[in-house]
């Protein structure tokens, strides 16, 4: 187990390093000179040079990259003399656009993304997993066909289309819901719920469709397993056969998938946040990309990759506790 953890953690650090390196390399190579952007309209060549020196843009790639890395771990200082700015670890730099520390931008926006992710996850687990199980039990009935049809729709309809349709119907036509805004829970729980319910639904719908299909297929496969036949041959009550012998093996893959999907969502739901104008990490990512705000792009990439990888490691650990075949090696 210890060996497993050490191996996984070492792998995790390696993958993170590569992600950072590639992202940095791509934006270093492809982006137009950020100094020109920062400088704005009334710019002189001297000013651009000074910005370059301050940001270290005049130094070679590997030095900049190492500077970025060391900023992450020990902090860094931009510029010299009275103009110097200290950036404490973990330093993700400053936005070229607003001059705001990237870390601070995260802190402000992460709550919105997390709220979206958690709320949507609850919904899609309810709809997807419960729906999939029910469809499997009632295989071939109208419920199964309806649920499977809805799931197919959910997979095929792009969620921004659904978002726009719902927004038009529920907000513009019926006026039941407000245009979503990130109302803090503490400020007004009722409003908080009304504002978030539509983004939750839209986000959950696509995932629920995937989970419904996966759960249904897994449950049906498991019901065909020989050990389910054994359980029935023992004369176990149907509900025990179902709960102990069919559900646990069937849901294990769902758990692993969920861990990764959820971790990914914490790193921002780009489309949903943009469509609904919710100021989360996803919107920050899309804004920074359109404006080529390199430090923010780097920050978002790094955090998103970190979350997904940590999610993966957690899933692996959970998996070993669920499945004894992984936890305990075979007898020699």
């Amino acid at each position: 187990m210890v060996r497993f953890l050490v191996t996984r953690l070492a792998g995790m650090v390696g993958v993170l390093f590569l992600v950072v390196l590639f992202t940095y390399a791509i934006f270093f190579a492809l982006s137009p000179d950020p100094a020109v952007q920062i400088c704005g309209k009334n710019c002189t060549p001297e000013l651009i040079d000074q910005i370059r020196t301050n940001l270290g843009l005049d130094r070679p790639f590997y030095e900049q990259f190492l500077g970025f890395l060391s900023g992450l771990f020990v902090g860094t200082t931009y510029g010299t003399g009275p103009n110097a700015i200290d950036c404490a670890a973990p330093c993700l730099g400053y936005s070229f656009q607003t001059g705001q520390p990237v870390l601070e931008m995260f802190e402000q926006r992460f709550g919105v993304s997390a709220t979206l992710a958690v709320g949507a996850a609850v919904l899609w687990l309810l709809m997807g997993v419960a729906g999939g199980m029910l469809a499997a039990i009632k295989k071939g009935t109208w419920f199964d066909r309806a649920a499977t049809g809805a799931a197919l729709g959910g997979v095929s309809i792009p969620n921004y289309v659904l978002a726009l349709v719902l927004q038009y119907v529920l907000v513009v036509q019926l006026g039941w819901l407000p245009f979503p805004q990130a109302v803090p829970f503490a400020a007004d729980p009722g409003q908080w719920f009304l504002n978030f319910v539509m983004p939750w639904l839209v986000l959950a719908f696509t995932y629920a469709s995937m989970y419904q299909r996966l759960t249904r297929a897994n449950v049906l496969d498991t019901l065909d397993e020989n050990f389910v036949r054994t359980a029935r041959a023992k004369g176990l009550a149907p509900r025990l056969v179902w709960r102990r012998h069919a559900l646990r093996p069937a849901l294990t893959p769902v758990v692993t998938l969920f861990g990764m999907d959820f971790a990914g969502l914490l790193g921002g739901a780009i489309i949903i946040e943009t469509v609904f104008g919710l100021n989360g990490v996803g919107k920050m990512a899309s804004d920074s990309i359109t404006k080529n705000d390199q430090p923010v792009i780097m920050g978002v990439t790094l955090v998103a990759a970190f979350l997904v990888i940590v999610g993966n490691v957690i899933v692996d650990i959970v998996y070993t506790t669920i499945d004894p075949r992984v936890r305990i090696g075979a007898r020699a």
Binding site: E225, N226, F227, R229, T230, A231, R232, A233, K234, G235, L236, R244, H245, R248, P249, I322, D323, P324, R325
Partner: peptide
Amino acid sequence: RGDRMAMIFQDPLSSLNPY
């Protein structure tokens, strides 16, 4: 079933629940 009459199968590995 399982009380008065019991059954064993061909493949004992897949007939036992791995969990």
